[in-house]
Computed example of a mutant assay.
Amino acid sequence: MSMVEERRSTESLAEVYRNEGVVQVPGLITGDEVEQIRTAFMSEVERDASWARDKGVPADDPLARYPRFIHPHRQEEMEAGRIARRLLTDERILSLVTALIGPALGAQSMFYFKPPGARGQALHQDNIFLRAHPETCLAAWIAIDHVDAENGGLMVVPGSHVTEIVCPEEADLAESFTPDQVPIPEGMHTVQTKMAPGDVLFFHGSVVHGSRPNSSADRFRRSLIFHYVPQTSTEVASFYFPLVHPEHQPVEGIGVATGGGPCGEFGEMAH
Rank of each mutant, 00 (worst) to 15 (best):
A140T: 11
V200Y: 03
V207G: 10
R222T: 02
A171D: 00
T193D: 05
G159W: 08
V207E: 13
L173Q: 09
V147K: 01
G210E: 09
F203E: 01
P179I: 09
T190W: 02
L173F: 15
P185I: 00
A196G: 03
F202P: 01
D180I: 06
T163L: 07
A171S: 15
A143I: 03
S211N: 07
R221A: 07
P185Y: 10
F220K: 05
G205R: 00
A171P: 07
D199W: 12
M188F: 12
D148K: 11
N151S: 09
G205V: 07
P158Y: 01
V157D: 06
A171K: 03
A174I: 01
D148A: 07
V166L: 15
D199R: 05
L224D: 06
E150W: 07
V191I: 10
A196Q: 12
G187N: 04
R219K: 13
F202V: 06
W141D: 03
S223T: 14
D180E: 06
Q192L: 11
T178R: 13
V166K: 15
A143T: 04
C167G: 06
G210F: 02
S176Y: 00
L154R: 01
T178D: 05
A140F: 09
V156D: 04
I165P: 06
H204V: 13
E186T: 08
M195W: 04
D180Q: 14
H189L: 05
P168Y: 08
Q181F: 00
D218Y: 14
D199C: 10
I165V: 12
G210M: 11
V208M: 09
L154Y: 01
G187S: 03
M195Q: 02
H161F: 00
C167M: 02
A174D: 15
T193L: 15
T178Y: 13
G152Q: 14
H204I: 05
D145Q: 12
W141F: 12
V156M: 11
A139H: 09
V191R: 00
V157K: 09
E175M: 12
F203G: 08
I165G: 04
P183R: 14
I144Q: 05
H161W: 02
A171C: 06
S160V: 09
G153L: 02
D148H: 15
A139I: 12
E170M: 09
R219V: 00
S216P: 02
C167P: 00
S176D: 04
V162E: 04
M188R: 08
H161S: 07
R212T: 11
S216D: 06
E164I: 00
H161M: 04
A143D: 12
S223M: 05
V157H: 05
D145Y: 05
P185V: 01
F220Y: 10
Q181M: 01
S206N: 14
V182M: 10
D172V: 03
L224S: 00
M195S: 14
R219C: 15
E150F: 02
S206T: 04
